[in-house]
Design a protein around this nucleic acid. Structure first.
Lengths: 152, 152
DNA sequence: TTAATAAAGTAGTCACGACTACTAAATTCA
DNA sequence: TGAATTTAGTAGTCGTGACTACTTTATTAA
């Protein structure tokens, strides 16, 4: 081991990127553990939720549109959406207006599961963010600033 | 679609958990893209860095110790550490004091790559967190509070 | 109006990340 | 001390998440 230290700080916890990563991983773990009760994963939840939002807006939702909205890549979206179709939570119809595209719709079962899942998601969020409850709006603003200015 | 909305908010961006997840995923993507230049992943970087920290403390580092420190599970750590051994970035010796355990050490090549990687990591962090530069300490405090009070 | 290009979706690879289940070596304690 | 339990590590599965490469269908433009 050489004498010149590689890192500029004394503990990894001083690094905001490291903290962001760690907290997010824990949050995801808690979410996935909780969502197991309704038989879906966090990623599946986010796609179901995205589909719900877009449908609420009155949009015709293709896989690509959903991927753009949920910030997932289209290859992964393709797979997960097929999984969700297999579970009967959404339907994939051929889009009559575009021979390449699929048209996604939540099934009644999908909407039911989404509602149940969201209850669990809200519980986990409440438990996690309770620690900074009084400054939740500050946190939200900072995260939005990060999100909006993310490189590339 | 029923008339009663499932979600309590109008846009997903109002949800702190969702934002945390999205920002973290982007951050990871940027890190992994940048680290490709030195041939390692973010996870590999974090284990090399953890090993460096623990060695600096004078500890004998086993895989389990490293997993605990980096908050990774031991199964994943086992695999990634073998990958890193294959790349010649660390060595895994049998621990003479415990027949079950491996003793990990950074190789000189590992230390070199860690240094190069950390330069890239610092650049990405600087670019990402530039957006909240003046409030970086507020962000750090909030994240530490979340981390310290994470359920379970 | 074709020819070039772009877009929607799929197949398959690699590397996590969480998991169950297992082996073998320590440790504990009855 | 010998049996029960704990601990370190591995094997293999599932579900992302990013990627390359491909097919098929639209769109654009020469």
């Amino acid at each position: 081991m050489t004498n010149s230290p590689i890192f500029a700080y004394a503990e990894p916890e001083e690094n905001n990127g490291y903290l962001l990563w760690q907290v997010s991983m824990r949050w995801q773990l808690l979410m996935n553990q909780r969502l197991r009760d309704v038989g879906i994963t966090l990623t599946q939840f986010s796609l179901l939720a995205g589909l719900y939002w877009l449908d609420r807006r009155g949009e015709v939702v293709t896989q690509q549109r959903l991927a753009d909205y949920a910030n997932t890549d289209k290859m992964m979206t393709s797979k997960v959406v097929q999984t969700l179709e297999g579970k009967g939570l959404l339907s994939r119809m051929d889009n009559p207006e575009d021979g390449r595209a699929k048209q996604l719709r939540l099934t009644p079962a999908g909407e039911t599961v989404l509602g149940q899942a969201n209850t669990l998601v809200e519980q986990v969020d409440a438990a996690v963010f309770q620690a900074i409850q009084s400054e939740a709006n500050v946190f939200n603003r900072l995260m939005q600033q990060l999100m909006a200015n993310m490189p590339k």
